[in-house]
């Protein structure tokens, strides 16, 4: 999905200042990335710019504040898996190191390996939980690669939420669909028994919950619930 997401949304093209030769960008997220490319996030007056750089080429993706419909964050298990693997390796190499030291055969190479693994474990734990953050617009859902940790996502949400809400302050929510009249029952159709009271109460309780497709009754905007509250 993100591979085809190199363009900005069409609605976003409407916003912005005319004839601005060089936008003034402020960095909101530092570079983060893999072996061959890295990404960073920059904030302009009316949009967020994701810059993905391979060293010889930069790709730009613009997300106009007015177009961002939602930000989605989910857990990525990179840090826990990495920390677990490094922790196991550090534990066993430390065990072997202790055994070899007890027998009087000290091994400098193994000690260095153990130290590196221990440092990597501490690094994975210290950097915090890893997450993936996606920007949802009308046309696409794009991963913001430079946001990799939960604290980074929290910080970015706190920074962007008021800006996006301000940019979309003139948007009015759609009115709910009118209730369709009940179908007339044919005289030959057997009368169905009334639903039990229990199920009616259950359906009332379930009102805040709504599937995305038929979500006319879904709860209104609720911003920035902490990730720890996820079930």
């Amino acid at each position: 999905m993100s591979a085809a997401a190199s363009t900005t949304t069409t609605n976003g093209a409407r916003a912005g200042a005319a004839g601005v030769a060089q936008q003034q960008y402020r960095r909101i997220r530092w570079q983060n990335g893999g072996l061959f490319s890295h990404a960073s996030l920059w904030l302009a007056d009316d949009h967020v710019l994701q810059v993905t750089s391979t060293g010889v080429q930069e790709r730009y993706q613009r997300f106009y504040l007015r177009d961002i419909r939602a930000l989605m964050t989910c857990d990525a298990h990179t840090s826990s898996v990495g920390g677990l693997i490094c922790g196991f390796v550090a534990f066993f190499s430390g065990l072997i190191l202790m055994l070899s030291a007890a027998t009087g055969n000290g091994n400098t190479g193994l000690f260095i390996f153990f130290a590196i693994m221990l440092l990597l474990t501490v690094f994975f734990l210290w950097r915090g939980r890893t997450v993936k953050m996606y920007a949802v617009t009308e046309l696409q859902t794009v991963l913001w690669r430079s946001v990799a940790r939960k604290w980074q996502a929290d910080k970015l949400l706190a920074q962007l939420t008021p800006l996006i809400n301000a940019a979309q302050s003139d948007l009015s929510p759609a009115p709910p669909l009118p209730q369709s009249p009940p179908l007339p029952q044919s005289p030959t159709q057997p009368q169905s028994p009334p639903p039990p009271q229990q199920s009616a109460a259950t359906s009332t309780d379930a009102a805040p919950s709504a599937t995305a497709a038929p979500s006319a009754d879904a709860a209104p905007s609720a911003n920035a619930a902490p990730l720890a509250q996820q079930p």
């Binding site: 419909r69 989605m72 989910c74 805040p208 709504a210 879904a218 911003n223």
Partner: peptide, 30 residues
């Protein structure tokens, strides 16, 4: 399809949970 509750979205196919921060454009009149 996603099951949306305030601040939370769950994919009904794979069961993955998301923290969901929606903005006015999500429910705005087109």
């Amino acid at each position: 399809p996603y099951l949306l509750t305030p601040g939370h979205a769950r994919c009904e196919m794979c069961g993955k949970d998301y923290r969901f921060t929606e903005f006015p454009a999500f429910r705005a009149q087109r």
